[in-house]
């Protein structure tokens, strides 16, 4: 089973995110970069399938030079090789253009299965995986928390509001991860040493045969006009009172009579 995992490097969720001077991007200098949490689940699942059934796990990343750190992390977890689409011309691509680039790289790769995250916690687009599946002409199964792969078929438990749908597809297919799928492993020290020797192939936009005029910040279909900080809530009103019952009565008075929400 040959598996490709789409992995993105994103700001650590703990990071303080500040708006850059241009007003449409974030300041990157103080940010710690990590593997997108949903993609960790994707790498882990790929490794488990490989351990059970054999095959290869390839990590595919589109991102700036430092994104190779995240590829190395995945290799240290146990993936076999990396492909890094790294080209200033691709920077700032929107989700659709990113998917075009990833799909172009996938065309040259043998694969039975593609695993991606449900969302990348930077732009929160929830879109790249579905678009990649469309460009590859394969089915996508979103928000999966259980997978069985056998006999050229994949059965996924897809989480939806209020329940789960079990769906079956034939391979090749793409699915996206949801928490509950697995517990991602940490890279071991020997894993980290080995990762240094694993191949990472770097590709430019031109290498992929993609028209430079359709990718990158200048060619976004979804144009960012402004970044703002979220509106501040008014300062909290702490409910005073002697006993819990007094506080509860006061809270209910507010919720029921003042803001009429219950």
């Amino acid at each position: 089973m040959d598996i490709v995992v789409l992995v993105k490097q994103v700001p650590d969720t703990e990071s303080l995110v500040q708006i850059a001077d241009d007003g449409v991007s974030i300041k990157t200098q103080d940010i710690k970069w990590i593997m997108n949490p949903y993609d960790e689940l994707a790498v882990e699942e790929a490794l488990q399938i490989k351990e059970a059934q054999g095959g290869t796990v390839t990590i595919l990343t589109l991102g700036p030079e430092k994104a190779v750190e995240t590829i190395r992390t995945a290799l240290a977890m146990g993936a076999d090789q990396g492909i890094h689409i790294c080209d200033p011309a691709a920077e700032g691509s929107d989700a659709l253009a990113a998917a075009k680039l990833l799909a172009a790289a996938l065309k040259d790769l043998p694969y039975d299965l593609i695993i991606a995250g449900h969302r990348a916690v930077d732009e929160d687009n929830y879109q790249v995986a579905a678009a990649v599946a469309e460009f590859m002409g394969i089915p996508q199964i979103s928000m999966v928390n259980k997978v069985v792969v056998s006999d050229g078929k994949i059965t996924c438990h897809r989480t939806i509001e209020g329940g789960t749908v079990v769906v079956e597809n034939s391979l090749p297919a793409l699915f996206t991860t949801q928490r509950g799928l697995n517990e991602p492993r940490y890279a071991s020290l020997p894993g980290i040493m080995k990762a240094k020797k694993k191949p990472v192939d770097v590709k430019t936009v031109a290498d992929l045969g993609v028209d430079g005029g359709s990718v990158g910040a200048a060619n976004r279909k979804v144009k960012i006009k402004a970044f703002n900080l979220p509106p501040e809530r008014q300062a909290v009103r702490m409910i005073q009172g002697e006993a819990a019952a007094d506080k509860a009565a006061e809270l209910l008075k507010i919720l029921h009579e003042e803001i009429k929400i219950i």
Binding site: V17, I19, I26, V222, F227, N228, L229
Partner: peptide, 16 residues
Amino acid sequence: RPMFGGKIVAKVEIEG
């Protein structure tokens, strides 16, 4: 649309 887990609120326009 909120981005970065709601730490940023982006205003976007769509072309085409």
